[in-house]
Design a protein around this nucleic acid. Structure first.
Lengths: 186, 186
DNA sequence: GCAAACATACCGTCTAGACGGTTTCTTGTC
DNA sequence: GACAAGAAACCGTCTAGACGGTATGTTTGC
């Protein structure tokens, strides 16, 4: 009988740990490596323990999705609150969440979401609705052609990052961010 | 003993069929559905037959990669040949291959590549080298900041397509393509 | 004492791949 | 152009292990 059984119980912490481990695994070893065995073991919990928090694998991925989008929602809201200029406000927040150092921690997790989305066709509907909501909420300020273009570029930049494509050097990257930001005001 | 054993042999056709089926499966049912059993069965070949052409699963994915990048290379070269203006020529070819109806057939297959890339960390190195080569080959004409930006936007647009994000209406899409194309000349 | 929070043991299914056999194709030889 | 002989292109079967999930026990907190 393992000691884990005797430790103090922190259900919420364990749940969080499971989600984080699942994210980390998916990022580092590919989505195929996210198995119930691997996740539970890496989180220091038995598989039964995992299945107590998430009754099946899909609900684990679903939990991951909710977790990540919630964090993203909060990060975006924070950024938008600090931006006095209405025009392109959402798009600028979008840029900074992905590419500024403060947003980095969450940016990493975002990669996981894409991986999960691509591997799990089932999650795409949730994704669709989530994007749709964002577009609708900011239709007045961020539906200019260039704003859309900028957001797509951010997505592409981030995909390149995810796939490990050759990276720009720091000055070029900075210039790119400036240019993107400028386009949100044009 | 089945009749299949006695049929005419068309090794190259079978090989191609296997790759196409793998691509189709990955697109429609997610990368997890690309199993040796599923692929071989859908291609009308036994698993042993599949393993004759591709000695293991990784080599199947690798074959898929080669197949797709070759097709892409040719499509890009075709486009570039028809473009008299040197500046941004590669980037414009990049746009058209992804978003013009003639490029659509290959565009579909490109999606598969991303899926494979994300799920298979091993393929990323090949991807990296491939991208690097393209960048190096067109460093004179297509390394302007806006050209990079356009290519990233194309990637993002295509990712949105892949994930089934809400799509633009046709006129907006056309305007977007115009705008992207214009930016390659600025 | 009772429910929540775990652990342990186990099962059916699926998967990648090995293996040995069978049929067709190709090539050299006369 | 006939024919042997090896190479290439398959097929069908089998297996070890991984995986998702179930069933049941044990501990802890209130």
């Amino acid at each position: 009988m393992s000691k884990a059984h005797h430790r103090k119980k922190h259900p919420e912490a364990v749940r969080q740990q499971l989600l984080e481990v699942a994210a980390k695994l998916s990022l580092e070893k590919g989505p195929a490596s996210v198995t119930l065995d691997a996740v539970s073991q890496a989180a220091g919990v038995s598989k039964g323990g995992l299945l107590h928090h998430f009754p099946n694998k899909l609900s684990l991925l679903d939990g991951l999705f909710t977790d990540l989008t919630d964090k993203f929602d909060r990060a975006i809201a924070d950024r938008m609150r600090d931006d006095p200029e209405p025009k392109g406000r959402f798009t600028r927040a979008y840029i900074s969440v992905f590419f500024l150092p403060e947003g980095l921690a969450d940016g990493e997790k975002w990669k996981v979401l894409t991986v999960a989305l691509i591997s799990e066709p089932h999650l795409r509907e949730r994704w669709r609705q989530w994007v749709e909501r964002y577009l609708a909420e900011n239709v007045g300020t961020d539906s200019a052609l260039d704003a859309m273009l900028v957001r797509y570029a951010v997505d592409g930049l981030w995909l390149a990052d995810l796939l490990g494509s050759p990276t720009m050097d720091a000055p070029t990257r900075a210039a790119m961010l400036d240019r993107l930001s400028a386009l949100t005001r044009s």
